[in-house]
């Protein structure tokens, strides 16, 4: 695929930010983020103005994914506990998935499952702020959703290529568009001003060994994605596992027995997480 088509696709993808269904709050938040003097009160106020959005955000932060089930009662409280980046990631993912909630229910579940797995993996690896890892997991397939919303024809072509050529979704994307959702993730993350660690994890979850600055987070999302596919929780667009890079396990200092523990916890939490719908 030539450069022209890539430019067209990129242009079309990034127009997603102008869709009327996206909460206007998101734009305000991105500019607030750029202001170092913005207080958490000011940020909480902006989010709270949109009641539907606030309700969704509270439902998400109180889900078992983040480990504070049922204890966070206000946006302000959520901001203090989880931080602005996590909240913004949640707003982006719920808003974008909202457009597709019916036809992509499987992908939403896959993303929730991956977020849960990432939280568990990050805790086990002893990393600080596991919530940030969870949000990276939540957003790791955002590019697939946005492609489906913005470029439905290409999306259909990708889906049929998966079947006709017995390819993975990721390979089919490259076959049809010349690049995958990892690239689209990077555009979107930059567009919405997501922090560099989450951006790199979104862009490198298929090749964590190539991550430059935030290898641990990329490896966590890579492993989370692999394990959720193994459990077949939700649907990533594939009916097979992704390749598990051994480098990811080495980076996290995980042995196979660590995976057992992670899967035990995943099985326990998935029962609860399958409940998180909008």
């Amino acid at each position: 695929m030539d450069e022209d088509l890539k430019t067209i696709v990129k242009g079309k993808i990034l127009q997603v930010a102008d869709l009327p269904t996206l909460p206007t709050v998101l734009e305000e938040l991105t500019s607030l983020m750029a202001d170092p003097d913005a207080s958490s009160e000011a940020i909480a106020k902006v989010i709270s103005r949109d009641q539907v959005l606030s309700a969704k955000v509270l439902k998400m932060v109180n889900s078992p994914i983040y480990g504070f089930p049922g204890r966070i009662s206000s946006i302000q409280h959520a901001l203090v506990l989880l931080g602005f980046n996590v909240l913004r990631g949640i707003i982006i993912s719920t808003s974008v998935f909202d457009m597709m909630v019916m036809s992509m229910k499987g992908l939403w579940e896959h993303s929730l499952g991956c977020a849960t797995a990432c939280n568990i993996i990050a805790r086990r690896a002893g990393f600080e702020d596991p919530e940030e890892y969870a949000v990276a997991g939540l957003l790791h397939d955002l590019g697939k959703v946005v492609t489906a919303v913005q470029l439905p024809d290409l999306h259909d072509q990708i889906v049929s290529t998966v079947q006709s050529k017995e390819m993975t979704y990721f390979q089919a994307e490259k076959d049809v568009m010349g690049f995958g959702h990892d690239r689209i993730n990077a555009w979107l993350a930059r567009h919405w001003g997501l922090p560099p660690n989450i951006r790199e994890a979104m862009a490198r979850h298929h090749a964590p060994h190539l991550a430059e600055f935030y290898k641990p987070m990329s490896c966590v999302v890579h492993l989370g994605d692999f394990l959720v596919r193994l459990f077949e929780f939700g649907n990533s667009g594939d009916d097979q596992t992704a390749y598990l890079r051994p480098e990811a396990l080495i980076e996290l200092k995980f042995k196979m027995s660590d995976l057992d523990k992670v899967m035990d916890e995943m099985a326990e939490q998935f029962i609860e997480v399958s409940d998180v719908t909008f």
């Binding site: 499987g106 077949e232 097979q240």
Partner: peptide, 23 residues
């Protein structure tokens, strides 16, 4: 709708060869 949370482990075991068929 696709929530695999309650699937039996015995069924998961059988799925392994399908899931890893590429490798």
């Amino acid at each position: 709708g696709g929530a695999g949370a309650g699937t039996k482990y015995a069924e998961r075991m059988e799925r392994m060869s399908v899931l890893f068929r590429r490798y």
